[in-house]
């Protein structure tokens, strides 16, 4: 009997060490799969908001995604409803559309039509107005707004500022 309890103990000891080793290995494996620190550090894009012209669409890139930047003209701002205005990012007294330029329906990139001042998605005909809100189905909601932080005349994409958090809390963006 003594022999067997000893064998049992050794077996359990081996099992316990192996379990610790397995958990440690899995942790290392998981961490190896994580995005690199340099990749994460590259996840911030700073835009100089003073260079954009009113009513002209510009496409920037943030984390590999297109970012639509459209500085609103005063006429554009006047046509917006109060709810649509909440989508506009105010840098000083200038209003910008700053949206992730990906259709919320199935991920295509809509084109801006400057004459009608709206966006048309080539894939399924979804349409957005110049505040990025959806005006024609099938998209379920307006363009998503990337996390941003206003820093004087500059805008840092990837960082959450109070203006962005307010939009998120109000359900303007996901």
């Amino acid at each position: 009997m003594e022999n067997y309890s000893r064998r049992g103990f050794i077996g359990k000891a081996v099992g316990a060490v192996a379990a610790v080793g397995a958990i440690a290995s899995l942790t290392a494996m998981k961490k190896t799969w994580d995005p690199l620190a340099s990749t994460k550090a590259a996840g911030f894009t700073t835009l100089d908001m003073s260079i954009y012209k009113e009513g002209e669409m510009a496409v920037e890139k943030w984390r590999g995604k297109p970012i639509f930047v459209l500085k609103q003209t005063s006429e554009m701002l006047k046509t917006l409803t109060a709810k649509q205005k909440e989508r506009i990012v105010m840098v000083g007294d200038e209003g910008f559309l700053i949206n992730i330029g990906i259709c919320t329906h199935l991920g295509c990139i809509p084109a801006y039509r400057s004459q009608s001042e709206d966006f048309l998605c080539p894939c399924h005909g979804g349409m957005y107005d110049h505040s990025g809100d959806v005006i024609k189905d099938p998209p379920p909601r307006g363009f998503d707004i990337p996390p941003f932080k206003i820093d004087g005349k500059k805008l840092v994409l990837g960082e959450e500022g109070p203006e962005y958090r307010k939009m998120k809390n109000n359900g303007i963006t996901l």
């Binding site: 290392a28 494996m29 961490k31 190896t32 994580d34 690199l36 620190a37 340099s38």
Partner: peptide, 13 residues
Amino acid sequence: YTIMTEVEFGWLW
């Protein structure tokens, strides 16, 4: 550089 310093536990592998 990448495996030895950047990847977590890259040195281990």
